[in-house]
Design a protein around this nucleic acid. Structure first.
Lengths: 141, 141
DNA sequence: ACCTAAATGAGAATAATTCTTAATAAAGAA
DNA sequence: TTCTTTATTAAGAATTATTCTCATTTAGGT
């Protein structure tokens, strides 16, 4: 990731959030850990350098970051929540064999979907966002 | 739901599963409770008539039913798993205001997506199923 | 009716997350 | 810079959803 300290700091400040070391570390962890880390993954990473960060703090900070649209939550079939630092609209590839979740960006597809739903015009429901869960198998699995 | 006892019994037997009252009750609960009940919802429903069904049994039966493709798990953004008795391929409308998840069946859309992904031909990944999470707002909310 | 493997009940155990409270620290004001 | 206010954090207890263990029961074939 080519995110630097100043950018992290600004992304917090721009949302009117206090810039604390914990928040900085957690943001950095999410950008450094590739592929949708769990809270657990993030806690381990942060504790390598800052062993006394409390579990509750990490969860609280993650919630705050999600609320302020600095990161996203990703739900999986298992029971643990995972987090995603990429805020551009994207879909997810779920492998049925392994735990890997890969991001999938496809603007053409998004255009097609947007058109489709515009034409469709649900009665009683306004579409805001469409995210695809693409299930399948990586060849290597 | 227009599912009768005999149909429930057969759906279990066809999969080679023993037909137990617990399994029958749980299946019936899922079909009767509209809109993607949680395990909790199912437990309450079943216990109205059969107060001594164990929590663990319900979870075990739900797993068995999912494994045998008699029901599906539905992922939500919150931390509780929900279940779905409709096995035809379908998508979900998620309301950002309320807890309701509505099924959405659209064969035209499925055709479009199928074609799109056939042409696209990911390298290194074989698509098996595409499910849309359609987020938005019901007008009534 | 009998046998055997599979299913269940009861409740303890675990895992992930949330809550509580006192102590600490960030950011603006003086 | 120092002070003040208020949000944030550490620590660990509490909660919630789910899984596990094991003794007992039961479905379904014989």
């Amino acid at each position: 990731m080519q995110i630097n300290i100043t950018q992290l700091r600004d992304s917090l400040a721009d949302k009117g959030l206090k810039v604390t070391p914990q928040r900085m570390n957690i943001l950095e962890a999410i950008y450094s850990l590739n592929n949708h880390p769990t809270a657990e993954n993030i806690i381990s990473y942060v504790r390598e350098k800052h062993p006394n960060v409390a579990t509750g703090t990490v969860y609280k900070v993650l919630d705050t970051l999600v609320e302020n649209e600095l990161i996203k939550k990703v739900k999986t079939d298992s029971d643990t929540m995972r987090y995603d630092g990429i805020m551009n609209h994207h879909h997810h590839l779920y492998c049925t064999e392994c735990e890997l979740i890969e991001d999938y960006v496809d603007e053409d597809l998004d255009k097609i979907l947007k058109n489709y739903f515009k034409k469709k015009n649900f009665s009683g429901f306004t579409v805001e966002e469409v995210v695809l869960q693409i299930r399948g198998k990586f060849d290597k699995c």
